[in-house]
């Protein structure tokens, strides 16, 4: 997708810098706990399941299932008005964590609960890339 400047760009911080760096390489990464084995999202300093701080970044398969979604018909910020109607979804990744994303693509408005989706990347300002999802398997 072309760079559509004006949309909110990712803001990396100490917890999330490797996540956004990976996104720039078009990779989706998750933090995984070395003690209990669970993945979590958003990335934290410690594992929210067991409080271990022995964490590693792992590459996600980038596939998941739509837990729920909405079709936005009124934009929350003026910049999104040009996109209306657009899909905001919660996607359950194969590794366990749930993330928010837009379902993008020509058939996005046909999104249904429970269907499979796969990650893609949308360019935002400053060369940053935002993980998004498309319907179907790759």
């Amino acid at each position: 997708m072309a760079n559509e400047s004006g949309y909110p760009a990712p803001v990396p911080n100490a917890d999330s810098k490797p996540y956004w760096e990976a996104a720039t390489r078009e990779e989706l990464v998750l933090k995984r706990c070395s003690s209990c084995g669970k993945h979590h999202f958003p990335p934290r300093h410690l594992c929210p399941a067991c409080w271990s701080d022995k964490l590693e970044w792992t590459k996600s398969a980038g596939t998941g299932v739509v837990y729920t979604f909405t079709i936005m018909q009124r934009a929350p910020m003026p910049v999104f008005a040009q996109r209306v109607p657009y899909v905001v979804a919660l996607v359950d990744l194969e590794e366990g964590p749930r993330m928010m994303a837009n379902i993008v693509g020509d058939d996005a408005l046909q999104t249904t609960v429970g269907e499979r989706v796969h990650v893609c990347f949308e360019e935002r300002a400053g060369g940053a890339k935002l993980p998004q999802f498309r319907r179907g398997t790759r």
Binding site: Y7, P8, A9, P10, V11, N13, S16, F41, P42, T68, F69, T70, M72, R74, A75, P76, M77, F80, R83, Y86, V88, A89, L90, M99, M100, A101, N102, R124, L130
Partner: peptide, 16 residues
């Protein structure tokens, strides 16, 4: 960081 870039709204969240 992980929701606002996707343009959700409060009604959008409750719609989900």
């Amino acid at each position: 960081y992980f929701e606002l870039p996707y343009g959700p709204s409060i009604p959008g969240c409750y719609a989900m």
